[in-house]
């Protein structure tokens, strides 16, 4: 049974079918598909920010000179541009996933499903709250 499912099965005796190939560019022609591909690509930029953070921690552990060199590297126009693009994608990533969260979370309270807006809202409120804590930490020092 398991082996049989590896391939798509159709009727044994069949006329000549027309089976078009899916184009490599299937995602270009429709906006929802393009949006999906952009959302998938955004994970690369999320990973990039993780790398930047790791480099920052490494520089911090190596002392003030290494950290100054890291800050200088961050000021490189190419890195600034890359980080701006990455920021756009990370925000896109967050917003698209927040908006999709209610699809995956069917939470029921007192026999009724929690409205989508509550789940999306909770995500945005948590995002804002954590951002405020980060801002407070930065301003305080």
């Amino acid at each position: 049974m398991r082996e049989a499912r590896r391939t798509v099965r159709y009727t044994e005796y069949h006329p000549r079918w027309y089976r078009p190939q899916v184009s490599t560019w299937w995602w270009v022609t429709r906006w929802p598909y393009l949006k999906f591909i952009l959302r998938e690509i955004s994970s690369v930029f999320v990973a990039w920010f993780v790398v930047v953070l790791l480099l920052q921690i490494r520089a911090l552990s190596r002392g003030p000179e290494a950290y100054a060199a890291f800050e200088l590297w961050l000021q490189n126009p190419l890195i600034v541009l890359l980080n701006l693009i990455a920021l756009f994608f990370v925000v896109f990533h967050a917003i698209t996933w927040f908006n999709l969260a209610p699809r995956a979370m069917a939470i029921r309270l007192r026999g009724r499903r929690v409205p989508d807006l509550w789940i999306v809202g909770t995500n945005y409120v948590s995002w804002a709250a954590i951002s405020l804590v980060v801002v407070w930490l930065l301003v305080r020092s």
Binding site: R9, Y10, W17, R19
Partner: peptide, 18 residues
Amino acid sequence: RYFPVIRDLVVEITDFMI
């Protein structure tokens, strides 16, 4: 889309049935 076409607008659906 994505189903083999038997004739005109009729597609082969055995795959879905299985």
